[in-house]
Amino acid sequence: MKERIALDLSKLPLHGTGSASLTFWGTGAFMLIEGMGFALTIAVYFYLMSLAPRWPIEAPPPNLLPGTVLTLLLLLSIVPNMLVSRWAQRKDLRKVRLGLIAMTFMGAIPLIPRFFEFPALHISWDDDAYGSITWTILGLHTTHIVTDLIDTIVLACLMYSKHADNTRRYGDVEDNALYWNFVVLAWLPLYGCIYWVPRL
């Protein structure tokens, strides 16, 4: 076919940011998948609860302490997380580096209370269906924390490498921050499920 030039795009930026970034949409799609996964675990939790004569089936309600500490830590981490995101938007390399290191800690520290959350359930995964679903919820969410933590660490290393000062990297930092917010927000209903529903 013959071609007729109708549009010149040479003035466009070499990289899309924000909603013009492909990774932004990709991250969004993956969050939708995982959000659906979390929604299903919650649905299964309530389904099993609706069948059980008592809930928890054969255990006292879980201890509140570790889960609540973790929740507070996660909520707290939103603050530096948003800051990193803002610095990345401004392409402030120095602050982004520091912020990523801070976020590495903010991502790692919750793993400590998380470690104590499992025994706080007072039940093992193979005791009964209640144990299975609560362990699954905790396990699933833990993999999300760990995945994002690893991502943060890799990004932090990248930001100290020669590849750092690049709009793409800043975009990655923003997407990583977005994903961390998702990990934190997804936890809240799960927290309510595990710790408060048995107390209703």
Binding site: K2, E3, R4, I5, A6, L7, D8, L9, S10
Partner: peptide, 10 residues
């Protein structure tokens, strides 16, 4: 028709 409008600049 026979000619396709296109964009240049990539």
């Amino acid at each position: 028709g026979e000619t396709l409008p296109v964009a240049t600049g990539l």
